[in-house]
Amino acid sequence: MKILILLITLSLALIAENILETIDRKLTPVSAQMYKKLINIEPDGSKKEFTLFQAKKDKDKMVSLFLSPDSEKGRATLRVGDNMWLYIPNVGRPIRITSMQSVVGGVFNNSDIMKLDFSTEYSVEKQEQKEDFILLNLKAKKDTVSYDKLIMQVNKKTLTPIQIECYTSTQMLIKTLYYKKLTNFGDNIIRPAVVETMSPMYKGYKSIMIYGKILLKNFPDEAFTLDALANTSDLRR
């Protein structure tokens, strides 16, 4: 009997982990390039826009390059697992940075922009079938992850997130992400093109991330190295 219960528990855990991997694959292919726009909207309605190129490979490699505005142009950020570096043109060699650091100001931080697969950083603690969505309670696998706990509402039909609440280890809500505008990017990539973020820490402020283009592309591992970071622009060509 004990063995049966153990087997059922193990199976449920595996199914739960699978759903996270399915969500990951719905959101981004294993290896791809993307163009994104970040918009910071202030309480008075004024906006600041940032355009980004991103390349990712496997579960733990990602590189980002700012294309605009001119004040940020050429800044590149590399993530390999828990390691993260920032390259600023004219300044020098890339420096190690932390995932909690904000690159451009506003509600987004590095880990939002350079987000790895959910299944790389989180495990499913609890899964509930609600009437309109699936509710997942996710727990960070390591204390190096920016948000200790996520509460994710998942669209039953598309298996993409609808809303994610991000909490610290002290149960403080840092921000809420809203996934909107389901879009077909081609290559069977159908996902929300917009992620809106609001934070109780930045009252009245809103940040929007818009996916403009997602393309399947296989990059060599060496594209995600410190030596290649200053030349991230090469990956676009």
Binding site: K37, T51, K180, A193, I210, R237
Partner: peptide
């Protein structure tokens, strides 16, 4: 309000800053 004109990010053979 979520418009993203992808033409504006097509790479050129040159870059300046």
């Amino acid at each position: 309000e979520y418009e993203f004109d992808i033409a504006e990010v097509e790479p050129d053979p040159y870059e300046y800053s």
